[in-house]
């Protein structure tokens, strides 16, 4: 799981253009959206949905579904490991 979390962090930094950040800067349990977290927004939700489809063959039906999964890095990793097609 730790390996998958690291892989996801690297991908997210690249896809969401978080250029000044390193994987160590992202707390695996900290919220990704809203104040007190990473400060991601609704456009990032769409980018993360594309990322899941491209890298893991996971197809989500809508943005609301994505927002439920993308709460923090641990949660994303758990969802990916349970649902990945590739």
């Amino acid at each position: 799981m730790e390996e998958l979390i690291l892989e996801l962090k690297k991908e997210i930094i690249k896809v969401l253009n978080l250029e000044d950040m390193t994987p160590e800067d992202i707390d695996s349990q900290a919220p990704l959206f809203g104040a007190g977290g990473l400060g991601l927004d609704s456009i990032d939700v769409l980018e993360l949905i594309v990322l899941l489809e491209k890298h893991y063959g996971i197809r989500l039906a809508n943005a609301a579904e994505g927002k439920k999964i993308f709460t923090n890095m641990e949660n994303i990793a758990r969802y990916v490991s349970e649902n990945r097609k590739r």
């Binding site: 456009i43 769409l46 980018e47 594309v50 489809e53 491209k54």
Partner: peptide, 10 residues
Amino acid sequence: EEGISPTLFM
């Protein structure tokens, strides 16, 4: 036709 970046499109 897959994997278009929504950020780029908007």
